[in-house]
């Protein structure tokens, strides 16, 4: 171990021996025990770290309010995002839960309307009713006049 190498370790990991590399820890400790310059360096660095720990940042009392109250621009959202936000609103979900219920009803309403107009190949079996125009024609040809024999 050299002083330069030890300085590098101190610069990188600080004065706490627990932070030093495990493989070099024992070597460093014995180097400190036997070297005056190393002890002086360790002491100087310890003083720096102590001062750094005491260095406080002032409080910013109005900052949170300022940040929260700043005007935020409306973001351009995609159509899908708009629809999803309408269906499942992020805010006050309880009050707007009806949206999901309403959206669930849309396929039902659509199905009713569609079924009213199209048969989709499903035939209604109704004998006698299907050929009612032919029946009328046959009836018209029949002579119902009463003849007196």
């Amino acid at each position: 171990m050299t002083l330069e190498k030890f300085t590098r370790i101190i610069d990188l990991h600080g004065t706490e021996t627990a932070r030093w590399t495990k493989t070099l820890r024992g070597e460093c400790e014995s180097f400190v025990a036997n070297n005056v310059e190393a002890r002086m360096l360790l002491n100087q660095q310890w003083q720096v770290e102590e001062s750094m720990a005491k260095l406080e940042v002032p409080s910013f009392p109005g900052l949170e309010t300022r940040v929260l109250n700043q005007s935020l621009p409306e973001r351009n959202r995609s159509f899908i995002e708009e629809v999803m936000n309408w269906l499942i609103p992020e805010e006050s979900f309880g009050k707007q839960a009806w949206r999901s219920a309403m959206a669930t009803c849309i396929p039902l309403v659509f199905g009713i309307v569609l079924g009213n107009y199209f048969s989709f190949g499903i035939g209604i079996e109704d004998d006698g009713f299907q050929y009612w125009d032919d029946e009328l024609t046959m009836l018209s040809l029949t002579d119902y006049t009463e003849t007196n024999f």
Binding site: V67, L72, E74, R75, R77, M84, E90, E91
Partner: peptide, 11 residues
């Protein structure tokens, strides 16, 4: 998706 309440929590 534009939630301001979520933004406030992050702040």
């Amino acid at each position: 998706v534009g939630s301001r309440s979520a933004y406030q929590r992050l702040v």
